[in-house]
């Protein structure tokens, strides 16, 4: 999550504009700078420096010279496959957690406030438990002799027991459960803001449920859907624990690959290149979020022109 922390913009902006000397001499400015110092130092040491050294590391060959071959390695062969798998699993996770999160959040908005609070707690509380414990919980539930499969066998469901672990299904179940609280929280906040009266208004004019949903409700919660979708996608990209424990060899994700390169192969440069690629993908995700927002803003403004 540290990647998402905002850069110390205000200071840079103030210094970059003309007459910065005059600006800096103001008492309020000086006080402001003093206040900003701890944050700036903190970010420089713990955020800017590590990123730059990772970047440098990824561009150095064994002798310390400049090279791009770590990137070439990362974007070819099994590395590329792993990258694509990561993207696919992240996309699946964000799609499923959007759909499930949408239904869950919608249901919560229709509950009485006291029940809504309670359900919200149930959704969020698992997040306070260590991710490791939660993942093992899933492994116990989803194993060949786990609760889920035992129940399905007892119900004589054809094909049971199913392989629910150590494959893509297992990984997606695990990551979805991790992302769900984020999507539910984001969507719930947007849905609460939708005036139920608008639904009644649409009905009064003759709009059926489907038309009301697609023409009125969905456009109003769309910003939340975009936010939640991209956030869960980004979070999933760099997720390590669940894919490592609940996936098989075919579900290795980039984070596991980095771990392997550092811990087993002592290959820091390659790991750095992968890290930079992950970071760029995250930026791409955030950028597309901005893009979607500005496009929709532009569409709105076109209406007002």
């Amino acid at each position: 999550m540290a990647v998402l922390a905002p850069p110390p913009e205000p200071v840079v902006a103030a210094a970059a504009t003309g007459g910065w000397r005059r600006r800096l001499s103001g008492r309020r400015t000086r006080f402001g700078l003093l206040n900003a110092t701890p944050v700036v130092v903190y970010l420089l040491v713990l955020f800017v420096y590590p990123i730059f050294s990772t970047l440098l590391l990824s561009l150095k060959d064994e002798d310390g010279g400049f090279t791009l071959h770590w990137y070439a390695d990362a974007l070819s062969g099994t590395s590329l496959d792993i990258l694509l798998i990561t993207l696919r699993i992240s996309a699946e996770t964000s799609a499923i957690s959007l759909v499930v999160g949408f239904l869950l959040a919608y249901w919560i908005t229709r509950l009485r406030p006291i029940w809504a609070g309670l359900v919200m707690l149930v959704v969020v509380v698992p997040h306070f438990i260590s991710a490791l414990v939660r993942t093992y919980g899933w492994i116990i539930l989803l194993g060949d002799h786990g609760l889920v499969n035992e129940t399905l066998v007892a119900l004589h469901v054809p094909g049971a027991p199913f392989q629910l672990l150590y494959n893509e299904l297992g990984v997606v179940i695990g990551t979805t459960s991790v992302m769900l609280p984020y999507t539910v929280l984001l969507l719930y906040a947007v849905m609460r803001g939708v005036d139920r009266g608008l639904i009644a208004a649409a009905a009064s004019m003759g709009a059926g449920r489907l038309v009301t949903f697609f023409r009125v409700y969905l456009p109003l919660v769309a910003p939340g859907l975009v936010n939640a979708g991209i956030l869960s996608f980004i979070l999933c990209l760099g997720y390590y624990l669940t894919p490592a424990l609940m996936g098989g060899p075919k579900q290795t994700m980039v984070a596991s690959l980095i771990d392997e390169q550092v811990m087993k192969n002592n290959q820091w440069n390659g790991a750095s290149a992968l890290g930079v690629i992950l970071l760029l993908l995250t930026f791409a995700g955030l950028l597309s979020l901005r893009l979607v927002k500005s496009v929709s803003e532009a569409a709105k403004n076109r209406g007002g022109a």
Partner: peptide, 10 residues
């Protein structure tokens, strides 16, 4: 309501 075809001002 949507089948009645009336108008409503809230």
């Amino acid at each position: 309501p949507q089948k009645r075809g009336l108008g409503f001002v809230f």
